[in-house]
Design a protein around this nucleic acid. Structure first.
Length: 873
RNA sequence: GAAGGCGUAGCUCAGUUGGUUAGAGUACUUGCUUGACAUGCAAGGGGUCGGUGGUUCAAGUCCACUCGUCUUCACCA
């Protein structure tokens, strides 16, 4: 069967079949195994509105590599998948769809709307998880969770109530970021700032006592309607006498005070600021300090309220124009300047955020941030790369209270009830029937829902059954590795940290593996608006999931952004094909024989060399993966398979497969391929499984997924044989190079004379020199005198190839002299080091030894070259 | 304004705790229908590791300064 394997690897033929095979075998499923060490990852839950993009592909590839590696390494491995309800995104999507039918949320009512939202979730919510399967993600689908499922909802209520009871959740009237389009509050982290061209309107306010004017400037003249003061810096000499006086607010005619506050920068502008406590966060603070009135002048959708009939109903930008015009008419406008400034926008819809005073629920952050900072400082949780700890600390050190209420319906409803009689709040996990304070039954629940991130923050433990002390929670928590992009450290990582510590008393994971963004070929961020996003599913379709995974796992280092390019995926696809064909070669040579996956009792030098090399690769890969150097790890097995196994071992074996030692060659071919497939499996699961299943392996092995990951094996260390092999390989390369330089085609064979002191090494290597260096015959001796021969010198031999018609004695001499000079230069460098007393006394023994050996080789080589030159003359 | 990243071959990027003559992929040049693979094989050219100074026996790697570039956070109305 294997002999009929297609000439090129076709991932489409195998991927779906293999994935179903894995599912059917339930190999992804975790059952608690108390005798094994657990290894747990919780998947960052993609939004149910989402489509798989390159970011997910990268994130999940890295997780799958870690999971598969640990599963093969004997851990009780659990990868919990799931999705996020994404309150604001989902609600926006549904409202939009309803709009097309001419419906609004209010038309359906809360219940009707939620019914519709759940239906939408049922229909589309699983789309992204299906897409994740195409990547080969080996998550435990039987444990798939959703942030709004019953368990997660219980956890949310539990946490809300507990934080409320500890006084860490409060309701208060604060300045919050309000999105006039989404009609909800959003948290500080959800505001994105962008530079916008605007204007600076310079105004003058008349002092009430008629002593003149005070000059100031604003970027938002429309907020003037809500001004309740003008502020200057207390130490500003220019205005010292004015503090305490009042001015007349233009248009409105209100008399407002001039107050002194250090918030004002005397250097900036005129050093005078108009204060609108209801519509600017800084002004709000000033207002609190000076006991100013808070006058809201805008409605929720950012239109001027009925309190100002002249402008009522105008949106903020219309009102701005109208007010500027009126200011001008009144003579209050001094001048207009162009001015570019940063404006906060809603991360979801891009609408300019309107700061607004409103009653919202907040989490008190200071007491929660402290332990979260300490946990990372103490190393209970480590960031990889470490530098991202700074980002984490920066956020936590500068954190403000977290606004968690959202004026949305899709989400976890806030478990708080208000009493219509005594106005007290009852917070409870269970729906109360009466006010906890006065016993009145006239209570109503808060209409708001919680920030999506409130439930995501609990994900590492809510998915394991918390607040119940389930066996899963007991066994798999704390989780091990959290894999995510640096862009969501403030949104998510930080919140999981303080939530985990506060609720469970333990950090939620020991390591945070941070990766960068996948950018487009020109290095731009992939975005919907640019339309430059690359669909991972299309890439999988064209090149295969393994190729995509390999591309994502290599070519960049942790935490750095990477560029996507077809060329890179193509190179990875070629590697898959290379491996496929190597396996095809193995099959062609073993299928007619009885081959077991075990090493022969007698090993040849080349066998020892490949085993020795493989053994070192296994050792290093384990180290690399354990320290999260996944890209380095996979490049090692890539190089091994391509350069060592294919380009050398298979070629070496070809000579042997015709002779009497064929059987042992077959055994080694299979054995090494088997190990190499296992080493590669976490990175390229589909092709490795496919090939592995066709190879001889122990009867109990159903899947490579559950095979042991190869580790270092003392008995496979063949230092000496490996060196002997390398000597022969060096000679082969040297001969090839010379032939190539002289444009001799491989078809033109020539006899090769090797003068060496290591005769046995070259005797063993003779068949390889014949096969791989186009030699017709090899003669080995101590010294040769040959006229008109091409001369090649390696560190261990002088090689002559008699090809008289090609030999230009002069050129040959020139080349040897050049090489002599180069080698002498190297030697003088080495000797320079060795003659340096500082080097000898301070460098480690190992390094000194290496340089000594090097110098010795160089001396030897110089002797050989000199002898060759003498012979030529 | 603050913090951080990046600068290594034409291009995209590796380079692990400082330690042989700095690597890969791709592109380029040359030669090969070599019974696994042209999605391939063999060989080659191409780098003063952004610059200057310092630490060290030893610097692409550590430190200081500097130039260029990108990102995040903050922000003065």
């Amino acid at each position: 069967m294997a002999k009929e394997l297609a000439k090129a690897y076709n991932p489409k033929e195998v991927e779906d079949r293999i994935y179903s095979f894995w599912l059917k075998g339930r190999y992804f499923h975790a059952e608690i195994q108390k005798d094994k060490k657990p290894y747990t990852i919780v998947m960052p839950p993609p939004n149910i509105t989402g489509q798989l993009h390159m970011g997910h592909a990268l994130d999940n590839t890295l997780q799958d590599i870690l999971i598969r590696y640990h599963r093969m390494s004997g851990y009780d491995t659990l990868w919990v998948p799931g999705t996020d309800h994404a309150s604001i995104a989902t609600e926006a999507k549904i409202v939009e769809a309803m709009k097309k039918e001419g419906l609004t949320k209010e038309d359906l009512g809360r219940e009707g709307f939620l019914k519709r939202a759940w239906a939408w979730k049922e229909q589309y919510g699983g789309r992204i998880t299906e897409q994740l399967k195409k990547l080969g993600s080996s998550c435990d689908w039987e444990r798939e969770r959703f942030t709004m499922d019953e368990g997660c909802s219980n956890a949310v209520k539990e946490v809300f109530v507990s934080l409320y009871e500890k006084g860490l959740i409060y309701r208060g009237e604060r300045m919050i970021n309000w999105c006039p389009h989404c009609l909800t509050s959003i948290s500080d982290a959800e505001v994105e700032y962008e530079e916008q061209a605007g204007h600076f309107w310079h105004l003058r306010y008349k002092l009430t006592d008629g002593s003149g004017y005070i000059y100031l400037a604003t970027t938002r003249p429309e907020t003037l309607l809500g001004d309740t003061a003008v502020a200057v810096h207390p130490d500003d000499e220019r205005y010292k006498d004015m503090v305490g006086k009042t001015v007349i607010l233009p248009i409105v005619g209100r008399e407002i005070p001039i107050v002194a506050d250090t918030y004002v920068e005397p250097e900036f502008g005129t050093g005078v600021v108009k204060i609108t406590p209801a519509h600017d966060p800084n002004d709000f603070e000033v207002g609190l300090r000076h006991n100013l009135d808070v006058i809201t002048v805008m409605t929720e959708d950012a239109k001027i309220t009925e309190d100002y009939p002249k402008y009522a109903g105008m949106d903020r930008y219309e009102a701005r124009k109208a007010i500027v015009k009126d200011l001008e008419a009144e003579g209050a406008l001094v001048k207009v300047e162009d001015y570019s400034h940063n404006v906060g926008t809603c991360y979801r819809c891009g609408t300019t955020v309107e700061p607004r005073v409103s009653k919202q629920w907040f989490v008190k952050m200071k007491p929660l941030a402290g332990p979260a900072i300490k946990a990372v400082e103490d190393g209970q949780t480590k960031f990889v790369p470490k530098r991202f700890e700074k980002v984490y600390f920066h956020w936590l050190n500068n954190i403000r209270d977290w606004c968690i209420s959202r004026q949305l319906w899709w989400g976890h409803r806030i478990p708080a009830w208000y009493c219509d009689d005594c106005s007290e709040i009852t917070v409870s996990k269970e729906t109360p029937t009466a006010c906890a304070h006065c016993g009145s039954t006239h209570i109503h629940q808060d209409p708001d829902t919680l920030d999506t991130w409130f439930s995501s923050a609990l994900w590492p433990f809510s998915t394991l059954g918390w607040p119940e002390n389930t066996p899963e929670f007991e066994h798999y928590y704390p989780t091990n590795t959290l894999v995510t992009g640096y862009d969501i450290i403030p949104f998510w990582v930080m919140r999981m940290m303080f939530s985990g510590i506060e609720q469970t008393g333990k950090v939620p994971f020991d390591t945070v593996l941070i990766h960068g963004l996948v950018r487009d070929e020109q290095g731009r961020k992939m975005s919907k608006s640019l339309g430059n996003g690359i669909d991972p599913l299309k890439v999988i379709d064209e090149y295969g999931a393994d190729a995509l995974r390999l591309m994502l796992a290599t070519g960049n280092s942790p935490g750095n952004d990477m560029r996507f390019s077809d060329k890179k995926v193509e190179a990875c696809r070629n590697f898959a094909n290379k491996l496929w064909n190597a396996s095809r070669f193995v099959h062609m040579n073993i299928d007619d024989y009885d081959i077991k996956n075990e090493l022969p009792s007698e090993l040849e030098t080349e066998d020892k060399w490949i085993l020795h090399t493989l053994n070192n690769v296994a050792k290093e890969m384990n180290e690399n993966i354990q320290s999260f150097e996944l890209g380095i790890a996979v490049s090692k097995i890539y190089d091994f398979i391509w350069d060592c196994y294919c380009d050398w071992y298979i070629e070496l074996a070809k000579a042997r497969l015709q002779g009497e030692k064929a059987q042992s060659a077959r055994q080694v071919l299979v054995w090494v391929l088997d190990k190499a497939l296992k080493l590669l499996h976490p990175f390229m699961p589909f092709i490795t499984e496919t090939i592995w299943q066709t190879l001889p392996h122990a009867d109990n092995g159903e899947t490579i997924m559950l095979e042991a990951y190869p580790t270092y094996d003392e008995s496979l260390c063949f230092e000496d044989a490996a060196t002997r092999m390398e000597i022969v390989m060096e000679a082969i390369r040297a001969i090839r190079t010379r032939r190539s330089e002289m444009n001799v085609p491989p078809s033109r064979k020539a006899k090769v004379y090797i003068a060496t002191e290591k005769k046995d090494v070259f005797e063993g290597g003779t068949p390889f020199i014949i096969k791989l260096a186009s030699a017709s015959e090899v003669e080995i001796g101590s010294e040769f005198e040959i006229d008109g021969a091409v001369t090649i010198v390696t560190s261990d031999a002088k090689i002559y190839i008699p090809m008289e018609e090609l030999v230009d004695k002069e050129a040959e001499l020139a080349r040897l002299n050049k090489e002599l000079a180069a080698t002498k230069k190297l030697l003088s460098q080495s000797e320079g080091k060795l003659n340096n007393p500082g080097f000898i006394s301070k460098a480690p023994e190992k390094v000194v030894e290496t340089v000594r050996g090097q110098a010795a080789k160089e001396r030897e080589k110089i002797e050989l070259i000199e002898a060759a030159i003498a012979a030529l003359k």
